[in-house]
Amino acid sequence: MKKFIIGLFALVGFSAQAAIINISTDQASYNVGDTITANVWIDIVELQGSNLAQPFIGGFVMSLMADATSLSYNDGSIMFGDKLGAGALSALLPVGFGVYSIQSAAFTPSVFTLQAGLTSFELFSLEFTALSSVSDALFGLTASVSEFGSFVGTPVSTASTEFSVEATSVPAPSTGVLALLACFGMMVSRVKARR
């Protein structure tokens, strides 16, 4: 029975497919006021699938959803990866309440040199500030990528990552410290009363 269960887990593990687009945060838990960094990268091996030739990414269009009541985007914090080339046209556009369109397109064949032999690379990272506590905050991402020279984006995957934001706790002073302060205050008042 034990071998059967191990074999079942191995079968499920090998048949599971990884996501083409991935998103992660630098921590799993934050305090109110902390900066949350989200990193988005692409898995070239998963995009390649059974094709023999490595795909070269010429651009992407993504929609990022964030809980706008708990998170605030830090203006200007987006950093695009360098694998689409220095001349890539990139932008982040607010679309609605907590929804952002993130786009980048390469116009030079330098992507062939920059991406050659890579299995994955970072597309961009961006930062948010935690505004209020929430137990299941979420970044959701839908993406489409195009191979170099193609202007038609192919939907590739959706991805999400969860994290929590805790209320910032201020440690309460210990009872012993409060008792010492009270004793010190009484001693000072007695000395003043004797004078």
Rank of each mutant, 00 (worst) to 15 (best):
K2G: 14
I5P: 05
I6Y: 02
A10N: 10
L11Q: 04
Q17L: 14
Q17M: 11
T25V: 08
D26A: 01
Q27C: 02
Q27W: 02
N31Y: 06
G33I: 07
D34Q: 05
T35H: 09
T35M: 10
I36W: 11
V40L: 09
V40I: 13
W41T: 10
I44P: 07
I44S: 05
V45E: 08
Q48T: 04
A53L: 01
F56V: 01
A66Y: 06
A66C: 03
T69N: 15
L71Q: 03
D75R: 13
I78S: 03
L84G: 05
L84P: 04
G85T: 03
G85E: 08
L89D: 15
V95G: 02
S101Q: 15
I102S: 00
A106H: 02
F107N: 12
T108Y: 08
V111L: 03
T113D: 06
T119Y: 07
T119E: 10
E122L: 10
F124V: 11
F124R: 10
L126C: 12
L126D: 14
E127A: 14
E127I: 07
A130W: 08
S135K: 03
F139K: 00
F139M: 02
T142D: 13
T142S: 15
S144L: 10
V152H: 08
V156P: 00
V156Q: 04
S164Y: 05
E166Y: 02
A167K: 09
P173F: 09
S174N: 11
S174R: 11
T175F: 11
G176R: 04
G185K: 03
M187T: 02
V188Q: 04
